[in-house]
């Protein structure tokens, strides 16, 4: 038996009269790539927001490596090994690409503010390691040539990759990607598929992925959860989901119409 890294247990999120996520239960095993799919407004991002602490679930429990993280503040959850990207990119826009990734390592700093300001040897060492790690990560993500550019000046596809690099810099065990291929062309999303698999292997990550590009999802997912109007309507391997009538009706059929 592999260890369950993420366990979401009967989680519900209610906004006033709207139930955005209803009684959702899911898990992810170590090094698994699990996809969460469903039409727009199905509640996928809301599920991410509950898992990462942005929203406190109305009811239910969430555990990371068996530790109950329900209702914890986002920064504490990140410290425990959860990292994420955002559907509507949220980079530190006016800062250099390199600094975006360096900032994500601040959570592990041992020096205090005064020691850092005085540039004590311990801080200098920590700071140097942060920059080295950031450069290594950006190289891995194919962003080596743009490290001194301002984050907002990057093309869309690169900004998405930078979000992934920044998330990985927090040294997570669990990575949540919210539509990482959104706005990418087929070639770019193919490349992204490989990149996601390579970071999973390189950094020993468990990945939960929201994605609309079905080729990406079917290609890299070990298992798929399908949400519709906040309800879980199917779970299974890519092959099982593709053959599932309910899913085809609720989602895949619509996607084909759109295409």
């Amino acid at each position: 038996m592999r260890q369950k890294v993420l366990e979401v247990n009967s989680v519900t999120m209610q906004f006033g009269g709207l139930i955005a996520v209803n009684d959702l239960t899911l898990f992810a095993d170590q090094k698994e790539i699990v996809a969460l799919i469903g039409p727009n407004g199905a509640g996928k991002t809301t599920a991410f927001n509950m898992i990462t602490g942005v929203y406190k679930p109305t009811s239910g429990h969430i555990a990371l490596n068996k530790l109950n993280i329900t209702g914890m503040r986002p920064d504490r959850i990140t410290r425990l090994g959860m990292a994420r990207t955002f559907q509507n990119i949220r980079l530190f826009k006016s800062l250099p690409v390199l600094d975006n990734v360096v900032i994500a390592q601040h959570l592990r700093i041992k020096s205090n503010w005064l020691g850092s300001t005085l540039r004590l040897p311990r801080y200098n060492k920590e700071n140097r390691l942060m920059y080295e790690h950031a450069e290594h990560l950006l190289e891995h993500m194919g962003l080596k040539d743009v490290i001194h550019e301002t984050a907002s000046s990057l093309p869309y596809g690169m900004q998405r990759k930078l979000e992934i690099a920044r998330a990985i810099a927090t040294q997570p065990v669990m990575l949540l990607l919210d539509e990482p291929a959104a706005g990418m062309n087929p070639a770019e999303s193919m490349e992204l598929t490989q990149l996601i698999q390579s970071v999973r292997d390189e950094f020993d990550l468990t990945i939960l992925l929201i994605e609309h590009h079905m080729d990406v999802v079917m290609d890299i997912s070990d298992r798929i959860y399908v949400l519709d109007y906040g309800n879980l309507i199917a779970v299974g391997t890519p092959a099982e989901i593709q053959a599932n009538d309910v899913v085809i009706k609720a989602y895949l059929g619509v996607a084909e119409d759109e295409a």
């Binding site: 990462t52 942005v54 503040r73 986002p74 920064d75 990140t78 410290r79 990292a83 994420r84 955002f86 949220r90 980079l91 530190f92 826009k93 006016s94 800062l95 900032i103 994500a104 601040h106 959570l107 920044r166 998330a167 810099a169 927090t170």
Partner: peptide, 10 residues
């Protein structure tokens, strides 16, 4: 730059 992103980065 972005409170939500900063908090999510720890």
């Amino acid at each position: 730059e972005d409170e939500i992103a900063a908090e999510s980065m720890g």
